[in-house]
Design a protein around this nucleic acid. Structure first.
Lengths: 338, 338
DNA sequence: CTCAGCAGCTAGAGCGCTCTAGGCCACTCA
DNA sequence: TGAGTGGCCTAGAGCGCTCTAGCTGCTGAG
């Protein structure tokens, strides 16, 4: 790759130097049939020599399609990172490029989506906080949209997510198996999927015929929320097990329990949700429900690609079965199995 | 914004409907002078009516420049998230767009940089793990590059970062003021900037005339590394204060100390570096050295813009003074001030 | 010998924009 | 009266690609 003095080399430059037409270079670069092996070699060598890289913009513009999949995500969210990594891999395997658009405190989801539209993405995957129902529906009517990891409120959008009923069910079954009967749920408040998990918890509670009303404690999506819930649980009387909305929340619970002198899992078992890195640390070893981000990503991309090809199923929702990852924060309740 | 049946509307469509030329619509949309107020209004209304959005790609292609700033970053890194948020704001204020390219376990920095090149970014900000020295130098010769938050090994690249000497100095001064004399540093191993902070710690140790050799413990950039170091410190004998490589590492120390029954700050004071959200949690209240991500971002963007304008200073390194954020993990040593 | 068939190549028309050069029409001023 | 001025607008040539249509020259069948 030799350094160019001026602007980057174009197809034209390569064509001139190799003594062929622009079109032929294009054919070679794209790797489509229509050139002899000899010419192909020669063109490729010339391109290499000039340090040629196709101009994405021009390419997309000319091709009339962008082969671009847009992704909105919250930075600094382990689950999103995981899914995004999977999207990169899956998209590239299908010949698509990925363009990221971050949602932050100062950058609303609407703004993030607009950026994707400006790039003329052919399809979008939404991970982060969602735009309003109406806007989402409009977006989904323009291009194929998959919402990952949370239910969507727009009928035109696809959804790929882990079944909360299954995930929560798995966790509660596990705790019941160990002998727990006093199980509390620290919920996610108004976070994505929190309502579903809450409902799933109530259903599991009923299904197992546990005593009393399902014990749902106000929580939230962050460590702080978990910590607050832990304080409340300790002062109001501990259950024997707690199922948290997500891993961050569970970690907050865990860390606060430690500080309050509550022993996990001896006095109380804790189960998280997400299988994120913070829970995997050696000194936490959080038992958790795993959502396979790579699998979700790959399914989302597949779904988009088939929508673009017009061959997608009518069913919009794709539910994936989660797995329970058993680690060190669950055990039989203190008094042994009743 | 009315829904289009087919492809998105173009300048041409707006022009036809408004009864003016394409060029004039372009003028209005770009907001440059050259149209009467009346026409401007009419065109704007028509554009709105059709739901017109300029095609970024075509725009950039035609303009001959992209007004694009590329950013490579590690997802799920609080410092990077913070800086990225700042970059969005600063870039948009200067009329630049931002394109993100993630570096992940499966996506090497080289790949991330290539993507930026394909987008024909005019300049790049590198946050994540860096490409090799040679590649970085080549990149920086092609376009203005700013490395944020860590020293770069390529003479052609700009660097914007917090002065490690100042940051570490601030932390050690604070501990000395409280009366600490046995201060250890849990380092970052081979992480970005770790060597600088290590050296700064040794220098501060010398400057304060502290007894013995500077006590540097092998650490790393994550919680796990901090936790491991904590175990070692406890078994080898505690200092009265520890300065960690970064907040994640400090949090690992903190959480392991709690689990080992070591009281912070009563038995040992802990200082972090980065001021990331995990340290701000109410039950940790980590004293830390703050790198103002937004400020770094804004300086980086400014530097790029002036490089592009050909008016940048010859000095490539821009050192920012950090601040010490006093919270709850530092106090006088157990025996009081000696 | 003719002619279809085909591999290998090229010309040229876009894709949706920007931007330069220039046209047209008051209006002003010598 | 006519040249000059300035505001508003348009034509048209790209930007770097892709892609269709068509043009070669070489086979091999009829």
């Amino acid at each position: 790759m030799s350094k160019q003095s001026g602007r980057p080399p174009t197809l034209e430059d390569v064509a001139a130097r190799a003594g062929v037409s622009r079109a032929l270079v294009s054919i070679v670069i794209r790797g489509v049939p229509g050139a002899s092996e000899a010419t192909r070699q020669r063109v490729l060598e010339t391109a290499e020599e000039l340090g040629y890289r196709p101009d994405g913009r021009a390419r997309l513009l000319a091709a009339g399609r962008s082969r671009l999949i847009g992704v909105t995500l919250a930075l600094n969210n382990p689950f999103h990172s995981d899914v995004t990594e999977g999207i990169y891999a899956a998209a590239e395997a299908c010949g698509y490029q990925v363009v990221l658009s971050a949602v932050t405190g100062r950058r609303a989801p609407e703004r993030a989506v607009e950026t994707l539209l400006d790039y003329r993405c052919e399809a979008a995957i939404l991970l982060g906080p969602l735009v309003a129902r109406q806007a989402l529906q409009e977006l989904a009517q323009r291009l194929p949209v998959v919402v990952v990891g949370q239910p969507s409120h727009a009928p035109a959008a696809d959804v790929v997510r882990v079944s909360d009923a299954d995930g929560v069910g798995l966790a509660v079954d596990h705790l019941r198996c160990l002998g727990h009967r006093l199980i509390a749920h620290v919920d996610g408040g108004r976070s994505a999927g929190a309502a579903q998990r809450r409902a799933a918890f109530r259903a599991a509670h009923r299904r197992h015929g546990l005593p009393g009303q399902p014990h749902v404690v106000a929580g939230g999506p962050g460590e702080e929320d978990g910590a607050t819930a832990a304080r409340r649980l300790v002062s109001d009387g501990l259950p024997t097990a707690v199922l948290a909305y997500n891993d961050a929340c569970a970690v907050g619970l865990l860390d606060m329990f430690v500080r309050l002198g509550v022993s996990v899992p001896r006095q109380v078992s804790v189960v998280g949700y997400d299988d994120s890195p913070v829970g995997r640390l050696s000194y936490r070893r959080l038992t958790t429900v795993s959502q396979d981000g790579h699998q979700l990503a790959s399914l989302a991309v597949q779904r988009l690609v088939s929508r673009l090809a017009g061959s997608a199923p009518a069913e919009r929702q794709l539910l994936v079965r989660p797995a329970l990852v058993l680690r060190g924060t669950t055990a039989e309740p203190a008094g042994g199995r009743p």
